[in-house]
Simulated assay, not measured.
Amino acid sequence: MTTISVSGGAFAAYQVIVGRGLLQQAGARIAPLARGRTVIITDETVEAVHGAALTASLAAAGVQSRIVAVPPGEGSKSFAQLERVLDRLLEIGLDRKDVVIALGGGVVGDLAGLAAALYMRGIDFVQIPTTLLAQVDSSVGGKTAIDTPRGKNLVGAFHQPRLVLADIDVLATLPARQVKSGWAEVLKHGLICDAAFFDWLAGEGAAGAKGDPAALERAVIRSVEIKSAVVGEDEKEAGRRALLNLGHTFGHAIETEVGFDEDALAHGEAVALGCCMALRYSAREGLCSSQDAARVEAVIAAAGLPTRLDQAGAFEADGLLALMAGDKKAEGGALTLILARGIGRAFVAKGVDADKVRAFLIAEGATG
């Protein structure tokens, strides 16, 4: 079991605990934080698999709990579900001493975290991520949000959790596609700033993409270490934290164009494709070698993830470009991309020439 501290000048420090059997220990670990009641926000699928174990653990530690379940899928990151969750919290009568627990993947974590941020101007919440993607990415760092038809995660708040429990055992219940989707975010961390980690992921560590528990545990620990260091320096993405969005500007635009249809394209799949596109664009602009871009594509393909635009569907260059211009990192309508000077050497590129990006999208297979 490994404990990683997340701390920064603007928020209270908290722990991310990575290990096995943590769901059964959750009650004892949450009890010191829960001075009153807890409400578990989850989705209907996760409730059926893990809800009873969590409520039993809380009860054994003397912690009262209620469950609020939303439909599974990206569609629950919406104004309608946010309103429904907040109304249930009001109906239950939570006060500022009570705690919200997010039990689920990134959708649940984002929705529950935003509800906790808004409820009575902010109450404590705990993340218990049940997907690999959530364990290595969305549960750490305090980003909470919902989607709108105009884009992904455009309405939200920064609200740090009090505790994160990343139980490796729960990953065994995931479909293979979800494990691969989360693996994209793991690979992303290596591409940003740790070439040696990427090398391990491309070799011995590749077993994690197939569900090997030991490889998954090491991958989660290193990913959280990387993310916690970045978040501690830059909580609100004023600078270095933007690096964590490698692949996301391309990926979010593609996700929006397919209507957030996870059957067509899961979030991690979009990130994987976006990372490949970011490396290929970097190579096209002479920022990194074509060999690095090709290696990244080969490693991502070997993990069973998409690497080419036509694997996600048919797209128009202008439509994708318009969505990229509306990305949260854009400034004054000018494009900001996370690009790379090589594996492990990502950087923030501001004021990127939109005409060059449009030409690149057409070269990638989008229609002009």
Rank of each mutant, 00 (worst) to 15 (best):
L216R: 06
A298S: 15
G274P: 04
D43E: 10
D292P: 04
Q160L: 03
Q178C: 08
R280F: 04
Q15E: 15
G332C: 11
K227N: 06
R96P: 12
N153C: 05
I101W: 00
G344N: 08
A117S: 14
A26G: 04
D355H: 14
G365P: 06
G274H: 03
A215G: 15
V230Q: 00
S181M: 10
R121I: 05
T367P: 11
T131M: 06
I92N: 08
F197T: 10
A195F: 10
A219I: 11
F125N: 08
G203E: 15
G51Q: 01
D261V: 07
A322N: 15
R341G: 13
A102C: 10
E47V: 01
H252S: 01
R162A: 12
E83G: 15
A202H: 12
M1D: 12
L89V: 12
H248K: 03
A270K: 07
L171P: 01
G8K: 10
K356D: 14
A294D: 14
P175Q: 10
S138Y: 02
K77W: 00
E233Q: 15
A346H: 12
G106R: 00
W183I: 05
G182L: 05
G8A: 11
S5L: 15
L273G: 09
D124I: 04
V224F: 06
V100P: 02
G105Q: 04
F250D: 05
G247R: 08
A314S: 15
Q24F: 08
G104D: 06
V99M: 03
G75W: 07
A117I: 10
L305P: 00
G9W: 11
